[in-house]
């Protein structure tokens, strides 16, 4: 049993590619832009283009394609459920009925909606994973902090906000490791997590999640003490070892993003229907 194998979100894959060398701010802005485009996209053509774009980035960043897709595996059951819900529950006037089962009716519009929503979730996840795979935690923090700096004018503690976010991201993997360990300890006492009906399976969650939560609180407490011991006082008066600087790669990335956004906006306005 190995849980951490399929977790790619929050993992950093060190490298020397152009994508790795980009200024974190460039990457964060690009990712935000891509997220907005994904939320607006309503056609197969648009999603196809995003897929091509992402594939290109994976290629340039020299991430093994199989590894890039691996993180999606644990999400599959949820996605399939979402797809089924859309297929049967999304109703639009004037669309053809595909087939009927009991009181449920699968419509053509539902089918498209299901497909689009799945693609949207998959790509949203892939975009963010691509960011964390190519950006170390330190530069991600620096970039985010730098971008959120203007928030200080309305009294938002931007440094603390970013710190919280980054710690949460790091804890994904740590908690997964802990979860694996506790699951194994309970399996050693005879729990078969894959046996039994729904209620029996749900009951098996307690022996795992109780220790996990207790451990998480303990860890948080230790982290607080460790930060305190090193005189961490938040963002005030903090200086940086590395200052961020934009370079030629960032200029190239900006041009590429602008062109891509232009194409996408054209598609949004030119094609209204599902194609």
């Amino acid at each position: 049993m190995e849980l951490t194998k399929n977790i790619t979100l929050g993992v950093y894959l060190p490298g020397e590619s152009a994508v790795h060398r980009l200024d974190p701010r460039t990457k964060i802005i690009s990712v935000t832009l891509l997220i907005v485009l994904l939320l607006l996209a309503r056609s197969y053509l648009a999603f196809g283009l995003v897929a091509l774009f992402l594939a290109g980035m994976v290629y340039i960043a020299k991430i093994p394609p199989g590894y890039a897709l691996r993180g999606l595996k644990p999400m599959l059951p949820v996605l399939i459920l979402m797809w089924v819900f859309q297929l049967f529950l999304y109703q639009a006037p004037g669309t053809a009925t595909l087939f009927q089962w009991w009181v449920f009716e699968a419509t053509e519009a539902g089918l498209h909606m299901g497909n689009l929503i799945i693609m949207r979730v998959l790509f949203l996840f892939s975009v963010t994973t691509l960011l964390t795979l190519t950006t170390s935690v330190v530069s991600l923090t620096d970039g985010l902090e730098n971008l959120l700096k203007p928030l200080r004018f309305i009294g938002i503690p931007y440094h603390e906000l970013v710190m919280t976010l980054v710690i949460a991201l790091r804890f994904v993997l740590i908690l997964a490791e802990e979860l694996e360990k506790i699951m194994k300890a309970q399996m050693a006492r005879g729990v078969a997590f894959d046996r039994g009906n729904f209620i029996q399976k749900t009951k098996k969650v307690f022996p795992v999640f109780l220790p996990l939560f207790i451990g998480a609180f303990k860890r948080a407490e230790e982290l607080i003490v460790a930060m305190d011991a090193r005189s961490y006082t938040g963002g005030k008066g903090r200086t940086k070892m590395k200052t961020l600087r934009m370079g030629r790669v960032d200029f190239a990335a900006a041009v590429i993003m602008l062109v891509f956004t232009g194409i996408m906006i054209y598609i949004f306005t030119a094609f209204k229907a599902f194609i």
């Binding site: 506790i182 194994k184 309970q186 005879g190 220790p211």
Partner: peptide, 17 residues
């Protein structure tokens, strides 16, 4: 797994009841 018992490092993490 019942015939081969396994006590983990820091086994108190498995206590939940």
């Amino acid at each position: 797994r019942h015939r081969v018992g396994y006590v983990f490092q820091n086994p108190e993490y498995q206590l939940f009841a």
